[in-house]
Amino acid sequence: MSDDATFEDSHDKPVNIGALDADDLQVISALCQDAVFPITEMRWQAKAQRFALLLNRFRWEDPGQDRHGPERVQSLLVFDNVLGVASQGIDRSQSDMVLSLLSIAWNTGDDGAGEIRLTLAGDGAIRLKAEAIEAGLRDVTRPYRAPSRSAPDHPA
């Protein structure tokens, strides 16, 4: 008797990648563009020097959107070696707020360390002071049909 097929057995493998430099981080940024997440799904673990987000990521890499429609997947985005976290344009007291991630970028400081900047829609941002880039993006659920039934759009 054979086992049931799993998502991992399919052609569309779940994303599980890491970033150790600015070029790698650009790949993660592209995969996370237009991800949405409730404000309650951000975690800063100071002792572990870790910042994590549980995202509902749009599957830009999916070649079958015309066949089955746009999809999202829950993904865990983790940054290690984080020394501090700051934000602007985010009211943490609004527990029902949903944020939209537009991009992730690395800015090198004078001492070799630097900052990872997560730019959010609506002029919000999260700044992670980091010793170095050490990030990971991993899909943790099966893809699901995007509730909007359409791809995010950025009119010019």
Rank of each mutant, 00 (worst) to 15 (best):
S2M: 14
S2Y: 12
D3A: 15
D4C: 12
T6W: 11
F7Y: 13
D9T: 12
D9M: 14
D12K: 12
K13L: 09
G18K: 03
A19F: 01
A19E: 01
D21E: 08
D21Y: 06
D23F: 11
D24V: 02
V27P: 00
A35P: 02
P38R: 09
I39S: 02
E41G: 08
M42W: 07
W44P: 02
Q45V: 10
Q45E: 15
A46Q: 13
A46H: 11
K47P: 10
A48Y: 07
Q49E: 15
A52P: 03
A52G: 06
L53A: 03
L54W: 06
L55Q: 02
L55K: 00
L55S: 00
N56S: 11
R57L: 02
F58H: 02
R59F: 06
W60G: 06
E61P: 07
E61G: 09
R67Y: 14
P70T: 06
P70D: 05
Q74F: 07
L77M: 03
V78C: 07
N81L: 15
V82I: 13
G84T: 09
V85Y: 08
Q88R: 13
Q88T: 12
I90H: 03
Q94S: 12
D96W: 07
D96H: 10
L99C: 04
L102E: 04
L102M: 10
N107V: 15
T108Q: 12
T108C: 09
T108M: 09
D110C: 11
D110K: 11
D111N: 11
I116C: 02
L120A: 02
D123P: 06
G124S: 05
R127Y: 09
R127W: 11
L128G: 01
K129V: 09
A130Q: 04
A130L: 04
A130S: 10
A132S: 14
A132C: 14
A132G: 09
I133M: 04
E134A: 15
D139Y: 03
T141N: 08
R142C: 13
P143D: 01
R145V: 15
R145H: 14
A146G: 05
R149T: 12
H154A: 11
P155D: 04
P155C: 04
